[in-house]
């Protein structure tokens, strides 16, 4: 109620009608990126494979968010929600993986000790 008081483009936020061209182009670019991600996985890039795959996935997710979910035409706050959620999730994953990588040897050793024992 208070947000739309501020000057915005002619249309009201949320009533933007997506043109068929943009919708089709969005779907087409998602298909192309899917093809690229499959192709890139067949090339051995070592640890970079997962980085490339995630980069492409993030690009695809951004495209979905901006056009299919029409965030590009919405109140910026909705984008803040999605980015915040993604950021919290990313930090959650990276903190825990950071921790687990450090104690990996202890798990390996315990694993082997058990195998030796049994």
């Amino acid at each position: 109620m208070t947000e739309h008081a501020s000057a915005r483009p002619a249309h009201e936020p949320g009533t933007h009608v997506m043109s068929p061209g943009i919708l089709v182009a969005t779907a087409a670019s998602l298909m192309v990126l899917t093809a690229i991600t499959v192709t890139s996985s067949r090339i051995d890039l070592g640890p970079w494979n997962v980085v490339v795959a995630l980069a492409i996935a993030c690009t695809k997710a951004t495209i979905v968010a901006l056009f299919f979910m029409h965030l590009k035409y919405e109140n910026r706050f909705l984008m803040v929600i999605l980015i915040a959620a993604a950021l919290f999730a990313a930090l959650f994953v990276s903190f825990v993986v950071f921790d687990t990588v450090q104690y990996q040897p202890e798990i390996r050793a315990a694993d082997q000790a058990v195998r030796k024992g049994s």
Binding site: F95, F98, D99, Q102, Y103
Partner: peptide, 9 residues
């Protein structure tokens, strides 16, 4: 802190 979490974490 004492759960076996790594030192830097």
């Amino acid at each position: 802190f004492v759960s076996g979490q790594s030192k830097w974490a």
